[in-house]
Design a protein around this nucleic acid. Structure first.
Lengths: 161, 161
DNA sequence: GCTAAGTCGACTGTTCCAGTGAACACTCGA
DNA sequence: TCGAGTGTTCACTGGAACAGTCGACTTAGC
């Protein structure tokens, strides 16, 4: 199961993607996202901060501050967001690609019957979650994505430093 | 991630399957499984009790007591065991087939972009976990499974009531 | 320098996890 | 009939994670 934090994070990221596709590129207020998506405002602060630490969003402080996606929405996937908030997608540490850790109690990893199946499960879910982008989820048209890409090139400060 | 309880449960069930395939059908002691699989004995008791409540194993009390699979090992899947211990396989309640629950904060379930992807993920992992049986994981031969089936028919008391 | 935005760390109540303990019930063999 | 060896049940615990909340602070624009 996903934590509610991760579900909020996905909704917030899709919201940012939709806003970016909707018009000129400028930071979005936390409060606006919270209101539109019905997420506790203070909690959303934490979530966005965490997403920022993972390089998925950028922030601007001060009066006209706010948050924006760090990359264009066609380059950010569900897997990116879920991994940032909830950690690895795999069912066990020993089947994680991004956060592999040997399991203590497992005698022989190579022949482990459980592991073999869990690796298949991880591969299947990871490839699905890595294939779904925020742009797709926000229902952005190729034109909107292209416009967003261009806006980002013209104003690199709105993207990753 | 699976809880360690679920991982123990899988290991214990595979152990029971292997023992059933290895010889005459009789209950296996908790203590033996715990020792072979290196699982805390008291904890394993809890786990087996829970598996019993879900109808996956049967128990016999008294001197020659112990635990046995409730069905032949080719009829019990990883999905059965994980669902019994950890609950639904899906990433959210609203995408679970076995324990569906509407999500509070979701406005329109039908068009929800998150849900659409999570359903695909659940379908993919469920079909993999439902396809893997204990017999397969224990490396039992078709002969051993057939023998076990026959043993069960001759002694129905060793199976589900 | 006021104001409205994000930043950061600490804090809280609740639930879940991973396990332990003790008392009890049952069955079988002697 | 007794007791030895099983499983059964329920209570309990320490620690961590979850789901938020709060207050004090920094930053940037007007």
């Amino acid at each position: 199961m996903l934590t509610s934090k991760a579900k909020y994070a996905l909704r917030a990221m899709i919201d940012l993607a939709a806003q970016a596709g909707a018009g000129p590129r400028r930071p979005i207020f936390i409060a606006d996202v919270a209101a539109r998506q019905d997420i506790p405002r203070r909690f959303l602060e934490n979530i966005l901060l965490e997403l920022r630490k993972h390089g998925l969003v950028v922030s601007h402080r001060g009066k006209a501050g706010g948050y924006a996606l760090a990359r264009t929405p066609d380059l950010i996937t569900f897997a990116d967001v879920i991994r940032a908030i909830d950690g690895p997608l795999a069912l066990t540490p020993c089947t994680s690609r991004t956060a592999y850790r040997r399991c203590e109690d497992c005698k022989d990893e190579v022949t482990c019957a459980i592991r073999r199946t869990l690796i298949k499960v991880r591969d299947a879910s990871a490839s699905l979650l890595e294939a779904t982008t925020l742009a797709e989820a926000a229902g952005l048209s190729p034109q909107q994505i292209a416009a967003d890409k261009q806006a980002q090139e013209e104003d690199p400060s709105s993207s990753v430093a």
